[in-house]
């Protein structure tokens, strides 16, 4: 196996507030190989966004990355760097794009200026040269008439164009890792496909790796080779994308797939996972999913499951790995029973 580009070990990001400690990310470990595309899936509140922000150390007070966490990137321990050294990595070696390109772009500067700023803060390049590179990049990400469009303000562009601008901004310095946090969620379906295609195309051309954060399994299926499923601040399943879709192991992953709308299937209603993600201030004891799980038994309430090895590169945080016969006796999850009673 090649040396990983990024290696995250036991990442814990806690928010210490007056209401208590929110363990938003609670012991996450994974690796990304060079030029690999990895997806992170989960409902809102599962900790996927906080994980991505933690990688760039963009967590603001009262949040903090706990001691004992390790993030190694290109052989450097990111958590040991001082602020200035970390700043030099952001936007340069690791870049990030966000969900809502309208609010993620500064409304009072032209998009050209916002692109040109990236090389300006990381090198001594002149204003004119930076602008020329910004225009060139806008062309690369498929914006027609880039020299003119560079002078536009974000509000003058469509949602899809704005996301192209965001992507262009992230790629200005050819980072080796691009973190995309829900890059297509705010876009129309047709535009979504174009943006994903653009990302895949750029990844193929530049040999960068992509960490794609999304709640949409469809997006993951289309554009990643490996999937990490997160729930309640933890990784609950990780597998090759084909393996995961063919043989999902964790009941939560199964639930996510059942909740996916599929064309061509005759189903009256979409299945939903009963209940909601529990509060990070007070994760449930045992398996954090047990109240919403149709297979949960007494062991799940008591014993926090480790990541069991299911197959090659396939792990799952579910006791079904050791007691597979329990899958034959599904029942109504606890959360649904409570919901029905209320």
């Amino acid at each position: 196996m090649t040396e990983p580009l990024l290696s995250v070990q036991d990442l814990r990001t806690y928010f210490r507030t007056s209401a208590g400690v929110a363990r938003a990310v609670d012991g996450v470990s994974f690796e990304i190989a060079p030029n690999e595309s990895v997806g992170v899936v989960g409902e809102s509140g599962c900790g996927k966004s906080v994980t991505s922000l933690s990688l760039l150390r963009l967590i603001q007070r009262p949040g903090s990355i706990e001691p004992g966490s390790k993030i190694a990137f290109e052989g450097t321990d990111l958590l040991a760097l001082d602020d200035e050294a970390m700043r030099k990595i952001r936007g340069n070696r690791i870049a990030m794009i966000f969900q809502e390109p309208m609010t993620a772009l500064n409304p009072v500067f032209t998009v050209g200026a916002q692109l040109a700023e990236v090389p300006r803060v990381h090198s001594s390049i002149g204003k004119r040269d930076a602008w020329a590179r910004a225009v060139e990049m806008l062309g690369t990400v498929g914006i027609p008439d880039p020299a003119e469009r560079a002078k536009s303000y974000p509000h003058q562009l469509s949602g899809g164009m704005r996301q192209r601008v965001m992507i262009g901004m992230a790629l200005m310095l050819s980072p080796s890792l691009l973190i995309a946090d829900e890059p297509t969620t705010a876009l129309d379906v047709t535009i979504q496909a174009q943006i994903l295609e653009l990302l895949a195309d750029l990844r193929a051309r530049t040999a960068m790796s992509v960490l794609l954060i999304t709640h949409d399994l469809g997006v993951v299926a289309e554009s990643t080779s490996r999937v990490i499923v997160m729930y309640a601040g933890e990784i609950v399943e990780q597998a090759d994308v084909r393996e995961l879709f063919a043989k999902p192991h964790h009941p939560y992953t199964e639930g996510l797939m059942a909740a996916m709308p599929r064309a061509g299937t005759k189903r009256e209603r979409l299945t939903v996972i009963p209940g909601a993600v529990p509060s990070p201030y007070d994760w449930p004891a045992g398996c954090r999913f047990h109240a919403r799980c149709p297979y949960a038994w007494e062991r799940c309430e008591r014993e926090h499951p480790p990541l069991y090895q299911i197959g090659a590169g396939h792990v799952s945080r579910c006791h079904l790995a050791v007691e597979p016969e329990r899958r034959n006796t599904p029942h109504v999850p606890l959360a649904a029973q409570i919901g029905a009673r209320a």
Binding site: L58, F98, E100, T103, N106, E117
Partner: peptide, 16 residues
């Protein structure tokens, strides 16, 4: 606002 996070993610210093 979100664009402040974007600016940080670009590597812009807090002062700027």
């Amino acid at each position: 606002m979100e664009f402040v996070v974007t600016a940080r993610a670009k590597g812009v210093s807090e002062n700027v």
